[in-house]
């Protein structure tokens, strides 16, 4: 009975839509991040190492 109900529910388009949104965002993020300049990426990656000589 409830399977029938869900089979005809337009709300089930929600997961499909959300998944497409994810795919779009994922593609955008991937392309964006892959085209960033190396110097900028390297600077960001080194952030944890900057305080290695902090005073104690």
């Amino acid at each position: 009975m409830h399977q029938e109900l869900f089979a005809h529910s337009p709300l089930l388009a929600l997961p499909v839509g959300a998944m497409l949104l994810f795919l779009a965002a994922w593609l955008a993020t991937s392309l964006r991040v892959l085209t960033r300049p190396k110097a900028e990426i390297d600077a960001a990656a080194r952030l944890p190492l900057e305080d290695d000589h902090e005073r104690r």
């Binding site: 839509g17 497409l20 795919l23 779009a24 593609l27 955008a28 392309l31 964006r32």
Partner: peptide, 9 residues
């Protein structure tokens, strides 16, 4: 949606 996402990106 997929086309717009890819081309837009």
């Amino acid at each position: 949606a997929v086309t717009a996402a890819v081309l837009g990106t």
